[in-house]
């Protein structure tokens, strides 16, 4: 299968403590893949490893057919990874508009690139806030801005770490609708979220991570047909 991103037995640690033992996953072009698992099982660490924010100690990461393991994160960004990080990491001292345009780029020369207008059309709420500082936004607005900011670099793969965490139900729907639309436009998406129904609804395939290992991989349908999975790996 021609995968856009492939992780093969990736290992990583924070100083003394080893966090990732054996993470393997794939994302195909135009596919939405979910990363599932309880808190503290290594999902965010996996994302950090993929985006070059954490050095890996073993395994391989292949993006667009090229091994990108331990490449600096700005090169990965240039190659087409767009990240919506956990905690959003909006630049508080930049306005909403500046957050969007600061790093904007269309390196792959896309014919219909993401522009400020397109992002505002996707999240109309942001157009009222263009002149506000990043620090003045609500959590939902911040998340929309983080998604918009990632889109403005015209990525081939969008990675969302906790897509709707801590957001009101209405705002969650806004984000999920946007993701649905992005997927329909052919963008590959790797998403972490606790909203299982939406994940199964929109996502194509999923990987479950348990204690730093990929323990299960399969389609939404396969997940639903194995009711014990939820109890074993995901429930409280």
């Amino acid at each position: 299968m021609d995968s856009l991103l492939r992780l093969e037995a990736v290992q990583a640690s924070y100083g003394q403590s080893r966090i990732l033992f054996d993470i393997s996953l794939t994302i195909g072009t135009g596919e939405m893949v979910g990363l599932l698992g309880r808190n503290g099982m290594g999902k965010t660490t996996t994302v950090r490893a993929i985006t070059g924010q954490l050095a890996t100690t073993g395994g391989d990461i292949v993006f667009k057919g090229r091994s990108v393991r331990n490449l600096p994160s700005h090169l990965l960004g240039r190659m087409g990874m767009g990240l919506v990080p956990e905690g959003r990491r909006i630049f508080p001292n930049l306005t909403v508009r500046e957050n969007l345009v600061a790093a904007a780029a269309n390196r792959s020369g896309r014919s219909e690139p993401w522009t400020l207008d397109r992002v505002l059309a996707l999240f109309p709420r942001l157009s009222e806030r263009l002149g506000n500082w990043g620090s003045q936004l609500s959590g939902g607005e911040q998340q929309m801005l983080a998604v918009g900011r990632a889109l403005m670099i015209n990525p081939d793969l969008l990675i969302l770490d906790e897509a709707t965490e801590g957001l009101a139900p209405i705002v969650r729907d806004v984000i999920w609708n946007a993701l649905r639309q992005l997927k329909s436009e052919g963008l590959a998406i790797l998403v972490i979220d606790r909203n299982l129904r939406q994940m199964m609804d929109v996502g194509d395939r999923h990987h479950i991570i348990e204690k730093g290992r990929t323990v299960w991989s399969g389609s939404s349908a396969a997940f639903s047909s194995e009711p014990t999975l939820k109890g074993r790996f995901l429930s409280v």
Binding site: Q53, G77, R89, N93, E98, N99, V101, A102, A103, I153
Partner: peptide, 24 residues
């Protein structure tokens, strides 16, 4: 300017600006 935005962004979150493809 764009350069200024990047400078300010870099001052508040160096890692994030790199993730966005900027050669910090």
């Amino acid at each position: 300017t764009r350069l200024g935005m990047l400078i300010r962004a870099g001052a508040s979150d160096r890692g994030m600006i790199a993730v966005l493809g900027v050669n910090i």
